[in-house]
Each structure stands twice: as structure tokens, then as C-alpha cells.
Computed example of a mutant assay.
Amino acid sequence: MQNFTFQNGTKIIFGKDQEQLVGQEAAQYGKKLLLHYGGGSIKESGLYDRVVQAVLEQGIEIIELGGVQPNPRVSLVREGVTLCKEHNIDFILAIGGGSVIDSAKAIAAGANYDGDVWDFFTGKSPVTDCLPIGVVLTIPAAGSESSAGSVITNEEGDYKRAVGHGTMRPKFAILNPVLTYTLPSYQTACGITDMMAHILERYFTNEKNVELTDRLCEATLKTIINNAHTVIEDPTNYAARAEIMWAGTLAHNDLLNTGRIGDWGSHDIEHEVSGIYDIAHGAGLAIIFPAWMKYVYKHDVNRFVQFANRVWDVEIDLNDLEKTALAGIKETEQFFSSIGMPITLAEANVGEEHFEEMAKKGTERGPLGNFIKLQEDDVFEIYQLAK
């Protein structure tokens, strides 16, 4: 087990009607707030009005910036940075899912920086300080509500890049499973896939003797799997929605990777796909992750056998461990398909025309992943396996 320091400063406020507490939580961080959100769904549901009322009751001034899209754009982030500087914003409140939260984090970092916010995502400048951020979560998926990372797309060149820093963790996150009842089934499935991928990135490690976090990863995966079809078929099932929502947070709050080094190659490979084709991140991961598994499983067949047995209840064939490992990969692929995810690039209307470009762009700052270091040719082959 690796040495580690674990500190997650995000206050989680979980349960029914907890968004009513947003005003008093926000009031701890100042008197001028940037309210950041996506489209009109929060207004149609009444959530926007409830949040605004709770904030105004605390005497907080609100500046608004809506319009966040899936795969959030740096152009809107730049608008947010400008607003923060012009209005001397004290605090940013994000209402939405991972895209809104990631956009809010980028704005929070850029607000205290004299250069262009994209510098953080290219490695030109490190993040050193952020405005405080709060979250009212509406889409369980990305885990951004308590993570230290942000992923943003630059329309110039179709680059999708990530950056992380401890100050980017939200100060609080309000998680009310009821707010997820109206999510379309496809969006729910994308979220399920995204959170599972976050766990799998941590699970496939070269680190030995990490039994506790192995078991935590496996338990969280099984909980997601056990509740996935319920939330899709019965969207207002509070118990199942609660399990999925909390699992999504645990999947990406860094607890599950304590003492181990995760991979993250699949995320980087997928970012090139959604950066160009603008598909949902979860859908892209449903395609890329099984392809990555097929490409690398021989590196540590025993870990893939453990995954197949403990997560998917595949009986271990001691005479053919490779058969067991491949069965676990197949179960993963079939599960993604069963909840409505594409499992090939063709299903997502992604052709082969950009494979070489994506492989080159993805590795331009070095090889991808840690389980196996993937060079440009390796990434190209994974796209081939995924087509």
C-alpha cells in the first residue's frame, strides 16, 4: 500500500428537502454570489425558485450565469471569470451535475488569476487558489460535487482537458435524491456508467496489498449495479435513487484510491472522443472502458479474475483464468448495453476518420494511464477495438 494523505473538506448535506439549507450554507462565504447553472430544467421543476429564495433570505446578492452545456465550454467559463472580477464575487453556487460543477470550478480558479483560465488546463500555469464553491446536485454521475478536479472543452481545436487542485473541492454539496426523479433514463444511465468508470479507474492498479480499498470498490460497484435497473424502470424509487446518488459521490471523493495508484487512461482516451463528437461522457466511457480492458487484461490476469468473480459473480475456472477474466469484461459490456448505453463507437455514430488524430492528441503530453503506459499506437488500437 502506498503512503497517502486523505482530506476531503466537502460538507455533504444529504436527504429530502435539504436544498432549503443552501442559503445559510452560502452565507458563510460572503454577500455576493455567482449562481451558475445549465438550461431551463431547474426553473421548470421549481428548484431555481427555491434556491434563489433561500439565498435572498440571507441578504446575499445574486449574479447569474446560465447556459452550461454537457462537455462544458471554456468560452462560458471565460464569461464567468469576467463576471466574478467585475462584480467582486465572493462565492460560486452551482446547481446541476458534473458539467455545471466543473464549469463553476474553472471559473472559481480563473477569478483569482490574471491570465487566461485555459492556462490551467494546458499545464502552462498551476491552480493555486479558488473562490469558494457550493453545489446543489441534480445529476449523480461525475462526483464533481466533492472532487478536486474539473474537465473543460476548448472549442478551438476540440480539446477536452482536466485539471485538479485541493482548493477546487466544493465547500458543501447538497444531495437530495428527489431532485433526480425527472432525469431522462438515458441521462441516468450515463451517470451510472460515469460513476462506475471512476471506480474502475481506481480498481485497476499495480499496487499490491490493497484489500480494504479493493473491497470498498467492489461493494460500491455492486451497489450501483444492484440499483441501476430500478432507477431506470422506477424513477421515483427514493431508496434506489439515494443509493445511486451517494455511490456517485463515494466513487470520486478520493476515498477509494487511498493507498493505491489508479489508471485513468480510459478517461483520457474518451475525452478525445467527446471533445470532437460532443457525445455524453458516460456513453463514451461505456464504449472505451471495455475496449481498454480487452487490450490490457493480460498485464494482470489475476486482477481481472478477481474483478469478474467479486463484482459479477463469475465462477473462477482455475484451468483457464483468461476465460474467467474475459467473462468479467463481457459482463461489464453487457451491463452497459442493458441500461441503454452504446458499447461500440459505431453505435454512437463515431467513425474511424479521427482515430489517428485522437490518438496523437491524447498522447501529445506523454503516455496515458498507469496500469500500462499507453503510447499513441496503443491508443489507436483501443479505438480500433472499440469501433
Rank of each mutant, 00 (worst) to 15 (best):
V77W: 05
K373D: 12
D263M: 00
L137M: 15
I316K: 09
F172K: 09
P367C: 08
S45F: 12
L256I: 13
M1I: 09
D90M: 09
E207H: 12
V117R: 10
G30N: 04
S147N: 15
I60H: 07
E25A: 04
I95C: 06
N227I: 02
G262S: 07
F204G: 06
I60S: 00
E211S: 13
V117D: 02
T82N: 14
S99C: 11
H271K: 10
P184W: 07
H299P: 02
I101P: 00
P177M: 06
H36R: 12
G97V: 03
L256P: 04
D116E: 14
E79W: 09
G259T: 08
T223K: 13
G39P: 04
F289H: 09
N176Q: 07
N226E: 15
V210T: 14
N319H: 14
T153F: 06
V22F: 04
V127Y: 08
T182F: 07
M341K: 02
Q334K: 14
S150M: 05
R215E: 14
H165A: 15
K361C: 11
T332G: 01
I12T: 03
M293C: 15
G259F: 05
E322Y: 07
A308P: 09
G191W: 01
G110N: 05
I95S: 05
I224L: 08
T324H: 01
E155D: 14
M293Y: 06
A148W: 05
A104R: 11
T122A: 08
V117C: 10
I329R: 01
V55Q: 08
Y238N: 03
S337F: 06
V136C: 06
G143K: 01
L33N: 00
L137E: 08
G166K: 14
E19F: 14
K43T: 10
T122W: 08
I13M: 10
A189S: 13
H165N: 14
T180R: 01
I192M: 10
V210R: 10
I101D: 00
I133L: 14
H354Y: 15
N8R: 02
S185I: 01
E233Y: 08
W292L: 15
F289M: 13
L34M: 09
G262R: 00
V379Q: 03
A148H: 12
E331S: 12
A247W: 03
T230H: 05
G96H: 01
I261Q: 15
G143E: 01
G369D: 10
F172W: 02
I13K: 06
F6C: 02
I89R: 00
T223D: 15
L285F: 06
A162W: 04
I92P: 02
G123R: 05
N227R: 06
D234G: 01
A327W: 00
H198F: 04
D263Y: 03
T258C: 15
L385H: 11
P184A: 13
N226Y: 12
